[in-house]
């Protein structure tokens, strides 16, 4: 790599720029759109220059959407709150259940352990629509449809297998002798798990938690079928922008910007742990 000519470096720079432009341009475009009115968005030819407006954001925040056909109520902020609630509680629950389970699968061999682990993974294979109809019938029967608890429970199908399988790998990479060394110095099994195993696997737990959060956040069908308007997350709530008087592109763009922000912030926060995990590395010694 040291003996690259200036020409090669220029080519590499251009190619990287092309890739970045390809992937980032839609995001940039949506960001710009969120500051334009519907008329400005639909202008032919489109232009990068416009006088920005914050009308989209204010209508989202206040919940009043002014359209040609009159005023519409928007539940966007409530949807956003639902998304935060559903995703964070689901991931928290999945971590509480999944991390000890991952440790058990990594450290102990018990009858059917591999089969149980694989069954949990297999929840990710089946298309969600396959289970949704029976699930909604059951939920109606036991009174769990249109409840946060029911949704969080179903979200475990997304979050739990992810966390279990990613964190399990990290636990397996920690030499058991490190834990033995701690236990023989007079500590219980539980202390060893909380003070040695979990801190050493923290980068993995952070990565798994982040991924699970993103998957939960982006989920659409579970909430669409199992929840009514007041429990729905942003993914479903965005449907409201397709109104009788047309598609509200400006609001959609603003909604996307707002709904991407929490996951983006979380990713930036967790990135620290991920980098730390890589540089600390070599747990195996």
């Amino acid at each position: 790599m040291e003996h690259t000519s200036p020409f090669e470096r220029i080519i590499r720079g251009v190619l990287i720029a092309a890739v970045l432009l390809f992937f980032l341009f839609p995001i940039l475009w949506i960001f710009l759109m969120s500051f334009q009115t519907n008329e400005q968005v639909l202008r032919i030819p489109p232009s990068l220059f416009f006088s920005p407006t914050t009308i989209n954001y204010t209508s989202l925040v206040t919940g009043k959407l002014q359209t040609a056909a009159g005023s519409l109520d928007l539940a966007f902020m409530r949807n956003l709150g639902n998304s935060v609630l559903l995703s964070s509680v689901s991931v928290a629950l999945a971590l509480v259940l999944g991390v000890p389970a991952a440790y058990a699968f990594a450290r102990f061999k018990f009858p059917l352990s591999e089969d149980i682990a694989f069954t949990l993974l297999s929840f990710r294979f089946a298309p969600p629509l396959l289970v949704l109809l029976p699930l909604s019938l059951y939920f109606q029967a036991i009174g769990l449809d249109d409840t946060y608890i029911g949704l969080i429970w179903v979200y475990q199908l997304i979050a739990l297998p992810l966390i279990l399988w990613i964190v399990r790998g990290y636990f397996e990479d920690i030499s058991p002798d490190i834990e033995y060394a701690y236990r023989i110095a007079g500590h219980s099994w539980l202390q060893t798990f909380t003070r040695i195993a979990i801190p050493l696997a923290r980068p993995g737990i952070a990565a798994a938690g982040l991924l699970a959060f993103i998957f939960c956040w982006n989920n659409f069908v579970f909430a669409l079928i199992l929840a009514s308007a007041d429990k729905q997350p942003v993914t479903v709530g965005a449907l409201a922008f397709v109104t009788a008087s047309g598609i509200q592109y400006g609001q959609i763009a603003a909604a996307i910007v707002l709904s991407v922000t929490p996951t983006l912030a979380l990713a930036l926060f967790a990135q620290r742990y991920l980098v730390e995990g890589l540089s600390l590395g070599a747990v195996k010694g």
């Binding site: 002798d177 033995y180 060394a181 023989i184 040695i196």
Partner: peptide
């Protein structure tokens, strides 16, 4: 105990 793989806490 001293372990063959050292097992120091990273």
């Amino acid at each position: 105990m001293a372990f063959e793989g050292y097992s120091l806490y990273p």
